[in-house]
């Protein structure tokens, strides 16, 4: 009887999660998958085929857009890591008490504002008549107004800025758990700052680095607002293509196929990156 009761309890506890997973994740994806397999052969006439997927591989524009999106996202991830690591190290290891809380909060505060507002903020800074352009003219570096928006550097800036928190938080958490005496022991045994970073700090922070990188990569790849607003019409971002298929072209079949390709290919990239760095998802999440 008792086991029946505890079983019922378990079922009730799991029910919200199961319902959430089913209705919001599994069902839409199954629906999307079925739509993606439909090939339009005439008005309201469909056949089951992989033609939509073939379009992706046969049309260089789509292919290249995906490759460009993946490449830009990887670059954004690496840049975020390079900027985020020293910030996280400073917060976790070199500050204490109130300063630490304040700095951590300062990383967090920009995320209280919606992503849209933050991106518009960057547009105010970078546009032709914006703050940066005016300032450079004022101090005499530039002769006339310059448009800083609508290029890859602007997209990159936006992506790194948007992702920073998701890199800093896991890094601060793992670096916090690194015992200071390990670093001191490293110095005591004759290690240089570089060798201690390489042999002690980075191996310890690896789970944080991996989880931060996965989150940042996925967020960048799936980002829509930042590339469109800061990159303009020519941003050529893969999520932009999906949006076009669904909203502009009403071609839900191709849009669904693109959605699935994005899911599959990004998972493949994460998988390869984990293999290359010798990490496993279980090890990363388990710690």
């Amino acid at each position: 009887m008792a086991s029946d009761k505890s079983r019922l309890g378990l079922i009730l506890l799991m029910a919200p999660l199961a319902i959430w997973l089913m209705t919001l994740i599994v069902l839409p994806h199954v629906g999307m998958f079925l739509v993606s397999l439909q090939e339009k052969v005439g008005i309201r006439q469909y056949e089951t085929s992989l033609a939509n997927y073939a379009v992706f591989f046969n049309e260089p524009l789509y292919w290249n857009t995906f490759a460009r999106t993946a490449y830009m996202s990887i670059t954004a991830t690496v840049l975020t890591l390079l900027i985020g690591f020293p910030v996280a190290y400073y917060i976790a290891k070199l500050t204490r008490g109130r300063t630490k809380t304040t700095l951590f909060l300062m990383c967090l505060i920009p995320f209280w504002v919606s992503e849209l507002v933050r991106t518009f903020g960057w547009m105010i800074l970078l546009r032709e008549t914006g703050v940066l352009s005016s300032f450079l003219q004022y101090i005499g570096v530039l002769a006339g107004p310059v448009e800083f928006l609508y290029n890859d550097a602007a997209i990159m800036t936006g992506l790194v800025y948007t992702s920073m928190l998701f890199m800093v938080v896991p890094l601060v958490t793992t670096l916090d758990s690194l015992d200071d005496s390990l670093i001191e022991a490293g110095y005591d045994l004759g290690g240089s700052s570089f060798s201690i970073l390489r042999e002690i700090v980075i191996p310890h922070a690896m789970p944080g680095i991996v989880s931060g990188c996965i989150v940042v990569f996925m967020l960048s790849l799936g980002n829509y607002l930042t590339p469109i607003l800061l990159g303009g019409k020519d941003s050529l971002w893969f999520t932009g293509l999906i949006y076009d298929q669904f909203i502009t072209r009403f071609n839900w079949e191709l849009g669904s196929a693109f959605g699935f390709l994005l899911l599959g290919l990004s998972s493949l990239i994460v998988f390869l990156a984990l293999k290359l760095s010798g990490q496993s998802l279980g090890k990363t999440m388990g710690r």
Binding site: S181, E184, A185, Y187, G191, E199, P203
Partner: peptide
């Protein structure tokens, strides 16, 4: 600096490197 001194230290909690 500590990494150039001819002294070594055994730490209170030993500080062995768990990653090695």
């Amino acid at each position: 600096p500590p990494n150039k001194r001819p002294v070594s230290m055994v730490f209170q909690h030993l500080a062995l490197f768990p990653m090695m």
